[in-house]
Design a protein around this nucleic acid. Structure first.
Length: 617
DNA sequence: GTAGGGTTAG
């Protein structure tokens, strides 16, 4: 504070209760050289502003701002810095910038605070511009504060090149050992899928904070390294670090992706023990984890236990119901959320529309699609259109679905054409199928599934010449079908099975049990649906290939290894084929077990010979 | 007076 301010004529000391007016006392700090202004009152105002920042009290903050002007403090750097911070914390970044732009003299803190304010509010470009301006004006070198803020902007923009430059700068200036800078660099690398670089930084950091640990756990999750994420989470537990809501939600996300229910249960226990069980982020992750691990009841239990619900929590629950073919519950919750005064957003509508698609509810789906724009001002994105294409196609309205794709306001995705092709397979529409396949072969030439689907449609129509052509095309292009894989968690360990698996230590036992099971099923009428196999081999071989689909191997392993009445939960990397679907139905009847299969699209709950999807999937 | 991390979507 190096400017003399005018007299305190406009200063309403009376309004500041409990503060006596002490004129021009000797200041305790060099920065408080005041002429005619009570410095204790200045301190009081600054303290008030900081309290407003902590309480996110924008209205009171604005009143305080008015008082600082009345006190003639508009030229004071320290007060302005506090004002910028207050406005930033209250979410009024424009007001913060207004103060910043009018400062006659800015300190390093002014720049740092303003840059972080822009970053915090998702204005990465403004943050970067300001950072560059800072360099141009010779306010160098940037401090650790500016560096960590600007790295945060890089993370949001996936600006890996800028991050590398800043990292080099930090190394040169020995700033990388600063825990804020180190963590921010680590986070950007992880978000830019340079997980090895992120790991290297983590390993070399002299000090790690709770944020460093949670950034690394989340980094692994963002890079689909779920097992590594859980290992790091456990490492933190072992060395006695307190888990935070951040590590907990990231670890739960890993469990959800792995379909690791037992592991997820353990993380749930830690969440309760640490008092984060009702944190909205943790609770939403818990709901999602339970739903994705096949336990919709436990997901609902968590949902019910949270008193103050938000839109993400509701979306997680609605999405869970939708995936588990519980469309009625999804729709009831959709109505309830509005009664609670929470508006559905675009995520809600994706789940509600996909619930309609899973259940074949055409009219309901179309009604939701209209409602979305009309009532809630939510404009349909590519996922909403995808759902609608799926709803129409599955219901046999393949021409309507095709028309919709042709009228889209953007380019149709492979998933849309794929959905249409699959619908054509169900409803035998060869004409539209050929159009869909043509687009798919262009968009994703390496996807063998599309060739197989088209060939199946030809085979059904007994168009053998075209079947042969499709097979030749598949062979000539060297297109490989994505290897089918299934995972099952037994005794807390996730076991992976690949189609035709031969290396599992218990494979002989699994094959023997599988044969017994199939023999028993055949007595009840099961017949291998060999049309689901498109290998160019004899029928016997086809049957064997089908028999060794990964989900069948995982099921048999589960039957051998788990307690007699325990449900069997399987996760698969592709959509379940018709033969495996039928196999699971028979298996649930013979063994009396509940079998829950999560494929890339949804859940199938098999019980006593039938499936929750009602054979519509 | 200023800095870094987490949730829901066919």
């Amino acid at each position: 504070m190096n400017k003399k301010v005018p007299s305190s004529s406009g200063f309403h000391s009376k309004s500041l209760s409990g503060v006596s007016s002490i004129q021009s006392e000797t200041p305790s700090s060099e920065s408080l050289v005041w002429v005619g202004v009570c410095w204790t009152e200045v301190l009081y105002l600054q303290d008030l502003l900081q309290r407003c920042a902590r309480k996110r009290a924008a209205k009171e903050g604005k009143v305080c701002h008015g008082r600082t002007i009345q006190a003639g403090l508009q030229t004071d750097t320290l007060t302005s810095n506090i004002l910028i911070n207050m406005y930033s914390k209250c979410g009024l970044v424009d007001f913060a910038r207004w103060v910043f732009d009018r400062m006659p003299e800015r300190s390093l803190v002014s720049w740092n605070t303003m840059i972080s304010s822009h970053t915090r509010h998702g204005e990465e470009e403004e943050a970067l511009d300001l950072f560059m301006q800072m360099q141009r004006e010779g306010i160098t070198p940037p401090s650790e504060f500016a560096l960590s803020s600007i790295l945060c902007a890089c993370a949001a923009k996936s600006a890996v090149f800028e991050c590398q430059q800043l990292h080099a700068f930090a190394l040169k200036n020995e700033m990388v050992s600063n825990v804020f800078v180190g963590t921010a660099v680590l986070d950007v690398y992880a978000k830019c899928y340079l997980i090895k670089d992120a790991c290297r930084i983590f390993d070399r950091m002299p000090d790690r904070s709770a944020v460093t640990w949670s950034s690394m756990v989340a980094g692994y999750v963002q890079n689909d390294l779920y097992e590594e994420a859980l290992m790091l989470f456990h490492r933190a537990q072992i060395i006695g670090l307190e888990q935070t809501q951040f590590t907990l939600s990231a670890a739960l996300c890993a469990c959800a992706s792995l379909a690791a229910l037992i592991e997820g249960n353990q993380v749930h226990a830690v969440s309760i023990k640490t008092g984060f069980g009702s944190n909205l982020f943790v609770a939403a992750s818990l709901i999602d984890m339970y739903a994705k691990c096949g336990s919709i009841e436990e997901a609902y239990f968590v949902f019910s236990s949270v008193k103050e619900k938000n839109v993400v929590l509701l979306n997680a629950m609605i999405s869970g119901f939708s995936k588990h073919a519980r469309s009625l519950e999804a729709m009831i919750l959709f109505e309830k959320m509005q009664q609670m005064g929470i508006s559905p957003n675009e995520v809600t509508y994706v789940s509600v529309l996909s619930a309609c698609s899973h259940m074949g509810l055409v009219r309901k789906g179309q009604r939701y699609f209209d409602l979305m724009i009309r009532e809630h001002n939510v404009y349909p994105n590519i996922l909403h259109y995808s759902c609608l294409v799926d709803i129409l196609g599955r219901a046999g309205m393949t021409h309507e679905a095709h028309d919709l794709i042709e009228r889209l306001p953007f380019d149709a995705t492979a998933s849309m054409w794929g959905s249409l092709l699959a619908s054509c397979r169900i409803h035998g529409n060869l004409e539209v199928a050929e159009v869909a396949a043509k687009h798919l072969f262009e968009i994703e030439p390496d996807n063998a599934g599309n060739h197989i689907l088209l060939s199946n449609i030809y085979a059904e129509k007994k168009r053998w010449v075209e079947v042969a052509r499709a097979r030749k095309l598949l062979k000539d292009n060297g297109v490989k079908k994505e290897m089918g894989m299934s995972w099952i968690e037994v005794k807390g360990k996730v076991h992976k099975f690949v189609v035709g698996e031969g290396n599992h230590p218990q494979i002989a036992e699994i094959f023997a049990k599988l044969e017994d099971l199939a023999a028993e099923m055949m007595k009840l009428g099961y017949k291998a649906e060999i049309e689901h196999d498109l290998h160019d081999v004899e029928e016997d071989r086809k049957e064997e290939l089908l028999r060794h689909h990964s989900e069948k191997l995982a099921l048999t392993f589960g039957l051998i290894e788990s307690p007699p009445c325990a449900p069997i939960r399987i996760k698969k990397n592709l959509r379940i084929c018709g033969d495996c679907h039928s196999f699971m139905k028979f298996a649930s009847r013979i063994t009396g077990r509940k079998i829950i299969v999560r494929d890339t699209n949804r859940f199938h709950h098999f019980s006593d010979g039938s499936c929750s999807c009602g054979d519509f999937w």
